[in-house]
Structure formats: structure tokens, C-alpha cells
Nucleic acid binder design. Structure first.
Length: 172
DNA sequence: CCCTGATTCGC
DNA sequence: GCGAATCAGG
């Protein structure tokens, strides 16, 4: 694996198809295939006609891309799509029983206070919100999502997997 | 800040 | 056909 074979061989194309239909992001696929950029993956996906995974029912994204210098572009008004794909509410149980663990020196890691929290930081709550030692994860959040990869896995478990076995979700 | 896919166009 | 550049958006 990890061959640097240039060009889209059948193997690479099939791998691309499999990963794409599997829901992997373009950058992940690019990293996995190796030797190609994220844009290369996206471009290939489009040429293969696999695009439109999350395409709105109507006109594609009016995203300009690299528009012509001064090309007469007829910007067609696009009706905004209804809010679909609502992520399952993580049901944040902020009230965590203090239990007996009064210790918890809060090592550090990358925890931040609400003041230090930025848009790209993981907002996973840690600790008791009613105490001063309450922090957020603060790790780099996935684009467009409120949590880092680790906590996204916990918060957005696939329905099947969640049904099969509920993992113990504890704030630490 | 980081990421996502979509699009265009020079090669 | 390929993919960097660029875009719009989360």
C-alpha cells in the first residue's frame, strides 16, 4: 500500500469510490490513498459522477469556485434548502453528580474556560458547571461541529451502534 | 483558527 | 483527464 503510483489506477479509483460512499471526507480519503491532494480527490469524485453526496435537491451550490475574471455570470437565486440532517442532540447532562470524587486536580490537557473558548475549540463540558473548576475540552473541534473528533464520536454515535450498545458517557 | 465539498480553468 | 486555485459555508 502507500504506493506513490501517479494517476488513477483502478485500485485507487475503487478505493476512492469505496471510501467516498462510506462517508469519508475528501481529505481523509486523500490521506489514506496517499500521493493525492484533497482537491484531487474531489475533482476525481466529480468526474466519476459520484458527487452530490449531500447535494441539495435543486441547483448545486452557487459557489463561485474560480470564476472567470469578468464573466457574465447569471447568478440564479437559489431557494435555501430546509434544515435537514439535524444532528442528534447530545443531550448534555451538565449536571454531573459530584459523587465522591472531590479531588480531581484537573491536570490540564487542553481544557479551557468559557472565556478562552473559541469557535474552533471543542465545547465538550468537563466537570461540574457549578464549580469554578468547570472547563471545556478545548481541543480543536471538527469543522462545523462543536466537538473534537474524540467527543464527536461520543456525541454523534450512529443509531445502529448506539442501539447495539450504549457506551458509558462520562464527563472527564 | 480549522475544516467541508463545489466549481472553474490552465495545463 | 487532472488538480491547484478559489469559492461559499460550517
Amino acid at each position: 500500500m502507500v504506493d506513490a503510483g501517479p494517476g488513477w489506477t483502478k485500485e485507487r479509483v475503487e478505493l476512492l469510490k469505496r471510501l467516498w460512499s462510506d462517508g469519508r471526507s475528501a481529505s481523509q480519503i486523500a490521506a489514506e490513498i496517499g500521493g493525492v491532494s484533497r482537491n484531487a480527490v474531489i475533482g476525481k469524485v466529480h468526474r466519476l459522477g459520484l458527487a452530490g453526496r449531500v447535494l441539495k435537491a435543486n441547483g448545486t451550490a452557487p459557489a463561485g469556485g474560480r470564476r472567470a475574471r469578468a464573466d457574465s455570470d447569471a447568478a440564479a437565486p437559489v431557494a435555501d434548502a430546509p434544515s435537514m440532517l439535524a444532528p442528534p442532540p447530545p443531550a448534555l447532562a451538565l449536571v454531573q453528580p459530584a459523587s465522591s470524587s472531590a479531588t480531581v486536580a484537573l491536570p490540564e490537557s487542553a481544557r479551557v474556560t468559557i472565556m478562552e473558548l473559541r469557535e474552533f475549540m471543542c465545547r465538550w463540558p468537563m466537570g461540574d458547571p457549578s464549580t469554578p473548576d468547570f472547563r471545556f475540552c478545548g481541543d480543536r473541534a471538527i469543522a462545523g461541529l462543536p466537538y473534537c473528533t474524540h467527543h464527536c464520536r461520543i456525541a454523534y454515535q450512529p443509531a445502529a451502534e448506539r442501539k447495539r450498545e450504549r457506551k458509558v458517557v462520562g464527563f472527564r
